[in-house]
Design a protein around this nucleic acid. Structure first.
Lengths: 214, 214
DNA sequence: CCAGGGGGACGTACACCGTACGTATGCCTC
DNA sequence: GAGGCATACGTACGGTGTACGTCCCCCTGG
């Protein structure tokens, strides 16, 4: 009973599953084939090579972002929701997220969020150039934040002790030493929202200035 | 003539050189040994394993950041300079930078910049918790920006055409399509500085509010 | 009903990888 | 000079991605 006919989607799903369970290093064609109860070379009937498979992983994760957009809401609320949607998917696929952010996509899967964000920003009143700028600003912040959140610990456990602060010399690093407890623990959600609000407010005043001037 | 006695530093240097020339995928113990005209296993007298070697690469790159700090300058100027120093080293070692940001450091090499930044922020008037918060905010933005700058193209060539925008359906992605030229080209330095100024101004008003209130 | 063909599953094989282990060779100390 | 130790090195093993050839099933045309 072949259960289900092997397909690119099934292979990608198996890869994501494996990555989340054992990390990206555990991914090998043999291992995936084994998980699917299939010969190694059978995979190559649906996937040209491993790199393409990993691209598929990124694409799949990216396309699973759930945007619940309310076109009637204020634009600040809408960009907030979009940024949170990104963070949510990263929370759901923490290990795979590292792949997404460290590979450049050649697919159009990443364009849906971009299109949506640009639409929101232009409706808010930004011209094309500013919309692109603001988008890049947000992407940089979101990606950077997610990288810290999911990259700080390979297991994504609730971070037991402290990643960067193990045994520091108080003479060499007085500040780090004094603030060790703050540096070691982190309410990721709270930190993320803090920066997000700061960014939104900043570009809101940016928009206001441009609007009243031009 | 053994030219120079093999050492961890020399091995790490060879690794960085190789990464910058041919990318991180080209790195293998055999290849590095070959580049150094040395047996493969000789490397293991100075480096416990490959992962540690890559840690060494990250550490080396990080420690080469040139901070030209002026303790007398205004704190906004100082954080600006520190952020730019980060970006400068990423520019100098683009491919290695990807390694730095995608690995979590277990070494203290990454603590020097942290210590410096915290000192600056606390001298500016932030309390411990806020200093840590602002530091995380800046790190997220800087890392996210660098990831886009160096990750957009594996060769770090001046980006020939456009990474994300090749052939988009104008029906599906009207905004992306309309802004294709803007999305495709990017004055990285200008964009980086724009976001940086925005961030600095934001936390400046944050500081002001706290100061006048408490 | 059968012949032919195309596509998917699979085994084998090769080049390469990280590295454990054993060995040889130089220098440094007693 | 003898002993010991750090370093350079060769060999070998299990794992990797994947090119290539083979087999079998199913689908189609006659």
């Amino acid at each position: 009973m072949p259960s289900e006919p092997l397909s690119r989607a099934r292979i990608v799903a198996a890869a994501i599953d494996l990555i989340e369970r054992e990390g990206a290093d555990a991914v090998s064609m043999r291992r995936i084939a084994s998980d699917l109860n299939v010969g190694v070379m059978s995979l190559y009937n649906h996937v040209p090579n491993k790199a393409s498979l990993l691209d598929g992983v990124a694409e799949s994760v990216l396309s699973q972002i759930e945007f619940t957009d309310d076109p009637g809401a204020h634009w600040t609320d809408r960009v907030r929701m979009q940024a949170r949607a990104f963070r949510q998917i990263a929370h759901h696929y923490p290990r795979s997220t590292m792949l997404v952010v460290s590979r450049q996509l050649h697919s159009n899967a990443g364009l849906f969020p971009v299109e949506r964000a640009l639409t929101t920003l232009r409706q808010a009143g930004f011209d094309g150039a500013d919309a692109v700028r603001m988008l890049r600003l947000f992407i940089a912040y979101v990606i950077g934040s997610l990288l810290r959140e999911v990259g700080v610990t390979p297991t994504f456990a609730p971070v037991p002790g402290a990643a960067p602060v193990g045994d520091v010399d108080p003479e060499l690093f007085p500040q780090v030493s004094e603030l060790a407890s703050l540096l070691g623990s982190c309410d990721h959600e709270e930190e993320f929202d803090f920066g997000l609000e700061l960014l939104i407010q900043s570009i809101a005043v940016h928009l206001e200035r441009k609007g009243t001037r031009g």
